[in-house]
Design a protein around this nucleic acid. Structure first.
Lengths: 270, 270
DNA sequence: GGGTATTTGTCCGTATGTATT
DNA sequence: AAATACATACGGACAAATACC
């Protein structure tokens, strides 16, 4: 049993999928019972193989319906965060418009929390201090794209930025608004990029398998004011299987609209 | 069966792990047989729960030995790529030294390939053109940290950058060397960040479970010269469960050595 | 709306293989 | 060599989701 049977089945199915033998995007795979006969394996073994394919993003399963070849849409490309002080919001719109897809940002849901955990620590606030949370969902062409929550210390509201606690979009951008209304200007930002398994909300919103096979890419952006103090923390999460981030620095030629290719470095680790 | 039993078991184990009830890093979990008795479930169900914990990076299994609480070391923090033209190599050393860990970069393994796939496309070379590949492995404190392959068009070697095809490190940095030896200067770079399942090499080098439960973060950096043409492509891969990337722009205060916290935004998607 | 067939999801019990100590 | 513990594989049963009539 050098290489397990479920792995052999998975490899064979993968080859067939990539060769297009099973039909293109959205095509149905044979049912588990058919695969069972096809490979002379038990259903559980076949299911292990299919799970592996799901992890690779090659297929997806719909309970009670079947298993299907994943349609690999052009990944969403989010561009240029980090090369300056642009806001994620505006970049979001620009990036999406370039790809000729229709972005939709939900009305923010407002929440007041006690400082704790990550946002509290990033904002350098004592536990128990009030924090304003603005939750937003973003869709592209009806598909869920990202979840975003921004945390502000309540002191900003006290200082005049009262629209932060109103459930309305701030069209000019929250950072620009805060500068105008509270006199706090963002002079620097730090992005923290991590990858982790999805939590329950993300599973629901993005429609992911809830066993964590699809990873979430999380960007935590902390904005700093003139005095070097953090005054807002934005947590944005993206399903990693259909997103790509591009960062440019210096002089980079404009790119023709070529879709990115899958990567393979081949060669063995010595 | 609103919430499956394997999931309840997984949640319970997770709670115990995070509370430290099972002991700290590296502590052994009860064996599958013990868990079976503990929860009154079958071994397969217990195993489903454990798989889920492995996906989350909370535990790892060692065949024939046991299941253990993952030691969550401070994640490696790679800092500042993108905010300028620094090279990944030098940043790598700096980032690691800050954390007082010893970085080790392997002697590069050289390979000559025909242009194709991702590197060929990024370098805008016709299929079949010769490409130099320099593979390197990087370790921190003996732990595998990243795999890196850089692709150069053979024309750079012809133009004088002959050390590219020697299996030796280029201490001053390959980009600086190429400028000196071939007169090609990097004036811009583009980073493409994607997340995907590990391939066979990465599974071996990083010691990952080979069913793709742990994701790989991949950064493809393309360097452009004065004429706006790409002249090198660097593909670096990191296991996503123990890495974090930080990007700063504008004025950001120096950070005290606080380790990053796990994130949780709570609240339900509306 | 209800009922039925199909298909995937969960769970069980058992047996055997393989890695580690 | 033996014991322990995880990995693989089988077969069966029922539940839940979906589609179709």
């Amino acid at each position: 049993m050098a290489v397990p049977m479920w792995r052999q089945i998975a490899d064979d199915l993968r080859a067939k999928i990539e060769a297009g033998d099973l039909g293109g995007d959205g095509a149905a795979l044979p049912t588990e019972l058919e695969l069972q006969d096809l490979y002379g394996a038990s259903r559980n073994t076949v299911r292990d193989a299919v799970k592996w394919l799901v992890t690779r993003g090659l297929v997806y399963t719909r309970s009670g319906h079947g298993t299907f070849v994943s349609h690999k849409p052009d990944p969403f490309v989010t561009k240029g965060f980090g090369s300056g002080l642009e806001e994620l919001n505006s970049e979001f719109e620009v990036a999406v418009r370039d790809q000729r897809r229709a972005p939709v940002v939900s009305i923010p849901r407002i929440e007041i929390q006690q400082a704790q955990g990550l946002p509290g620590a990033e904002l350098e606030l004592a536990d128990g201090t009030s924090i304003v949370c603005r939750h937003q969902q973003r869709n592209i062409d009806g598909d869920p794209y990202s979840l975003q929550t921004t945390f502000y210390p309540m002191s900003l509201v006290d200082a005049g930025a009262t629209r932060l606690i109103q459930a309305k979009n701030i069209d000019e951008g929250a950072v620009a608004y805060i500068e105008k209304a509270a006199g706090v200007r963002q002079v620097g930002a730090r992005d923290r990029i991590t990858v982790r398994a999805p939590d329950a909300n993300e599973v629901i919103f993005f429609g992911l398998p809830d066993d964590g096979r699809v990873a979430i890419l999380q960007i935590v952006r902390t904005g700093f004011d003139q005095t070097g103090r953090p005054f807002r923390v934005t947590v944005t999460t993206y399903p990693a299987d259909r997103n790509q981030f591009v960062l440019e620095s210096g002089n980079v030629p404009v790119q023709e609209t070529g879709q990115p290719e899958p990567a393979s470095t081949t060669s063995v680790a010595g």
